[in-house]
């Protein structure tokens, strides 16, 4: 039972550090850390959502940034119309823009989920290499769509006039925004931890192991995988909405396939199929990027080969090292 405790201890320390971070940052006189860690939390949410389908479902999606990007664009476009006081949709009924988080964020989640239904329904007809290429291709399709969409800035993207509004909170304040991100990440991790242990989660894990066997047991596996894909896409959409708020800018670059690749790296670096690992992976990747780019402009020259070495020789992820077990969580 020692290892179980070790996992709990690690998680508690991690959570405590994240909760106290704004305080530590101000004590250290580095308030910049708060916004860096907001960014980490946002990518952690995206990476943890990818882990649901990658780590538990065994589906290697290389198009996850599409959901991240569409979530950001929903916030961007709603805010654009709110600022211009123009209608998003004028007919058959009027939909105005909005700068309220209570409107924009659920909308981001919903639209991302809708996109995931479409992408998932097509790509889940295949598996393996096909699945990787198809998710990648659909994400690029969306990327080029937004590049061509001149009305919303095209290639240049869209600047937000300000962050979204929430009753009683000021999202423009970096510390308050940090705690909103943290709350949403914790909520998602808790829900996911329940999810992977529920009967539904068992089915998803069974599909990763042997989908044909699941079908011969009587599971219509396509539906389960699709729903899981949609849940992951919706959560990535929320992460995108948060990202749009943090940087107050959206652009097609958010959906570029290299970003899908980076989210995938975060999951694997932290440990796939562990849910908390991707949070660690996001932190490690972004901190490493931050530090390496201080020393050299060409940090990718070293990061690329390092990534290859990690893949070839150390495949258990940071979470596995920290918690000290190789067995997948749950």
């Amino acid at each position: 039972m020692f290892q179980f405790d070790r996992q709990k201890i690690c998680l508690s320390i991690g959570a405590l550090l994240l909760v106290l971070l704004p305080l530590l940052a101000s004590l250290a006189g580095e308030p910049y850390l708060v916004s860096l860690f907001s960014r980490i939390l946002i990518y952690a949410l995206a990476a943890a959502s990818l882990d649901l389908i990658l780590g538990y479902g065994g589906l290697v999606s290389l198009g996850h940034a599409a959901f991240f990007g569409i979530g950001a664009y929903v916030v961007g476009i709603l805010s654009f119309h709110d600022f211009e006081e123009s209608a998003l949709i004028a007919w058959p009924f009027l939909i105005p823009g909005s700068d309220s988080a209570l409107v924009a964020w659920p909308a981001a989640i919903f639209i991302a989920a809708l996109l995931a239904v479409f992408v998932g329904a097509l790509s889940l007809r295949t598996s393996g290499m096909h699945f990787i290429m198809i998710t990648l291709a659909f994400a690029q399709m969306l990327y080029f769509f937004f590049v061509a969409l001149e009305g919303y800035g095209g290639d240049d993207g869209l600047s937000l006039f300000s962050r979204n509004t929430l009753p009683a909170l000021d999202l423009g304040d970096d510390t308050q925004f940090y705690y909103v991100c943290l709350t949403l990440l914790f909520a998602f991790l808790y829900l996911s931890a329940r999810l992977v242990k529920s009967p539904f989660g068992m089915v998803i894990r069974g599909c990763r192991e042997n989908e044909k066997r699941m079908q011969s047991l009587g599971f219509p596996t396509f539906r389960y995988k699709l729903l899981c894909f949609v849940i992951a896409g919706a959560a990535a959409g929320l992460a995108g909405a948060l990202n749009a708020n943090q940087v107050e800018y959206v652009s097609p670059g958010l959906m570029h396939w290299t970003r899908s690749g980076i989210i995938l790296i975060m999951v694997i670096l932290g440990g796939s199929g562990t849910l908390y690992g991707p949070v660690l992976g996001a932190a490690a990747f972004l901190l490493l990027e931050e530090v390496l780019s201080i020393y050299t402009e060409h940090w990718m020259l070293y990061f690329g080969p390092a990534l290859i070495l990690v893949v070839l020789f150390a495949r258990h992820g940071l979470y596995g090292v920290l918690v000290g077990k190789e067995k997948r969580h749950g």
Partner: peptide, 13 residues
């Protein structure tokens, strides 16, 4: 999993 399969759907989260 086999028992779940027999119980009907597993959309319980």
């Amino acid at each position: 999993l086999a028992i779940q399969a027999h119980q009907g759907h597993s959309f319980r989260f």
